[in-house]
Design a binder for these strands. Structure first.
Lengths: 151, 151
DNA sequence: ATTTATGCAAACATTTTGCAATAAA
DNA sequence: TTTATTGCAAAATGTTTGCATAAAT
């Protein structure tokens, strides 16, 4: 059971101050954005989106803020190999990774208890949490196998 | 339901030639590496690993090969926002991450089809694959609560 | 022999760092 | 006032492209 204290945007704001971080305009922008969108975003995307919305912010601030916020556990950082994606913190969630667009959607999914129990017995462990990554295509048929030309 | 033709490294080699791609030394290196490791790797990681192993290959070859191989459906490309991760094509496998020892165990687990279907309907996508990360303790009781630094 | 594939070099893009100016508390 | 935070400029790092050379078939 991962009982996350932070759920709402307000929680995130409060958590910042509780941890000695100042609530600068730029930091608020970032948090607001992450709590607005369901997918996870890269630093560059966050920079682009904010500036497009007229919410001026510099590169440095974006990168440094994301680093700080995720280190403090105020935003979630998904790190895979080179890339880092950031999202808001909510209930234990799994992800649907869209193979067409690269978009990541949060979904809430509980596995059947029997299934968990089965895993625990098989491996001799006590499972405390899990994340599922689904890889999916937007359209029913954009399978990589058939859509490929053979030149 | 993802009936993948390609399973083994040999399959991948054959598929290359079947699709008019030559089996260069560098291309073999990349495929061998991807079929050796369970995780997905970025282009940079693949470049680094191969050269560390004394398997000389240039940046261009790595990037162009990965692009071509994934376009042909011979390797899997997971695209997330900015970054792309590449892996071999094989059966869906999941991991149990031991929170005591850091050990990672491979497990094969099929989710109930109803559950998959339910996800697809809820999100309006066609799921092609999934990976589950379980986080588990060896002993029935170990505290899952991690304290955050408050500096 | 033919054509794909390689990889240097250079363009381009993204991320990080030093540091003086700025703004939150 | 004090100190965290910003953001420019420049460095570092990662990715892509043009093209002459090399290698696979």
């Amino acid at each position: 059971m991962s009982a996350k204290q932070i759920q709402t945007l307000e929680d995130a704001f409060n958590s910042c101050q509780a941890k000695g971080m100042r609530l600068s305009r730029q930091r608020r922008y970032i948090l607001e954005l992450l709590w607005e969108v369901p997918q996870h975003l890269s630093a560059r995307e966050i920079y682009d989106k904010l500036n497009q919305q007229g919410k001026a912010i510099g590169h440095t601030s974006v990168y440094q803020n994301l680093e700080a916020l995720s280190r403090k556990g105020i935003v979630e950082c998904i790190q895979k190999a080179d890339c880092r994606l950031y999202g808001n913190i909510s209930d234990p969630h799994s992800h649907i990774n869209c193979l067409d667009t690269g978009e990541i959607m949060d979904v809430f999914l509980e596995l059947p208890p029997e299934l968990i129990q089965q895993m625990e017995e098989r491996a001799g462990v006590k499972i405390s949490d899990y994340r599922i990554d689904f890889y999916a295509y937007r359209s029913p048929e954009s399978s990589p196998n058939k859509a490929e030309e053979s030149l």
